[in-house]
Amino acid sequence: MIWQKSNRADPRAREIADRHYNRQKPGTPQFVPPGRCLVLYAETETGKAFWVTSWPFAEYVKHQWAGAWVCSAFRNENAGVASEMIKQAVAATIAHFGAPPPQGFITFIDRKKVKPTMVHGKPTWGRTYELAGFKPVGETKGGLLALQLLPEDMPPAEEAQNE
């Protein structure tokens, strides 16, 4: 397990979060949406990474995947193979929260701010998520690409390291 548990105000993770495209106010101490969350941090000889699982209460969610766990941020700065890191983060989320919700895991990608990976000559967004088992399932009203990982496709629970 590459990940260690962190928190919503960890300065090491915040430094990486400040470079993530969806960061609204770089430099502020907290970088996680309000509500239930799991923050993971990784540091290897070659790089650093952070991951945030948010679990918003369904009544406050406006997208069609209300109730799902949400990967609200993931940034890998050469810490390892991204798709394997995603699988481990999902496993750590299951270990932290318990059985996944029926909607599983969802993540959103802003194709205006993320460079695509070319696959067989076609631009593809979310390739590392797809390699981790996520499947494209549509778009939000605002045009974000949605990728989903259903519970039956998730890896077994595995605890992240403690801080």
Score class of each variant (00 low, 15 high):
Q103P: 08
T53P: 03
P34K: 07
N162E: 11
G142P: 06
Q161L: 01
S6D: 08
K25G: 04
F108M: 11
R12E: 08
V70I: 10
E45H: 09
T107R: 14
K113C: 10
G138W: 04
K141I: 13
F31T: 00
R19M: 03
R12S: 06
G35C: 01
W51L: 09
E45L: 02
I109Y: 06
V81F: 15
I94C: 05
A79H: 06
G121V: 10
E159R: 04
T117W: 11
A99W: 14
G67F: 04
K48G: 07
Y41E: 04
A132V: 07
F31R: 00
A91D: 04
L40E: 02
G104F: 07
P34N: 06
G143P: 00
W69A: 13
G27W: 07
K115V: 14
K48P: 08
Q30S: 11
A92H: 02
E152L: 15
K87H: 08
K122Q: 07
G143L: 14
V70S: 00
A132G: 10
A73I: 03
F105L: 11
I106R: 02
A99R: 15
E84A: 12
E84W: 15
S6M: 01
P56H: 05
D18R: 01
H96R: 11
Q24W: 02
A13I: 05
V114H: 06
A89I: 05
E77R: 05
G47V: 02
R75C: 04
P101V: 11
F134G: 01
N22V: 11
G133H: 12
N78S: 14
A73T: 06
A68W: 02
E158T: 05
L145M: 07
F74R: 01
V32S: 00
K62S: 02
S72T: 11
P26I: 10
Y41D: 02
L38A: 03
T107W: 10
I2Y: 06
T117E: 11
A82V: 10
A160M: 08
H63G: 07
A9R: 09
M118K: 14
E158F: 00
F57Q: 15
H20Y: 11
V81I: 14
G67Q: 04
F134K: 05
E59Q: 09
E84D: 13
E152G: 15
K87L: 15
Y21D: 05
G80T: 04
P29W: 03
K48F: 08
P155I: 13
A146M: 01
G138N: 03
G80R: 06
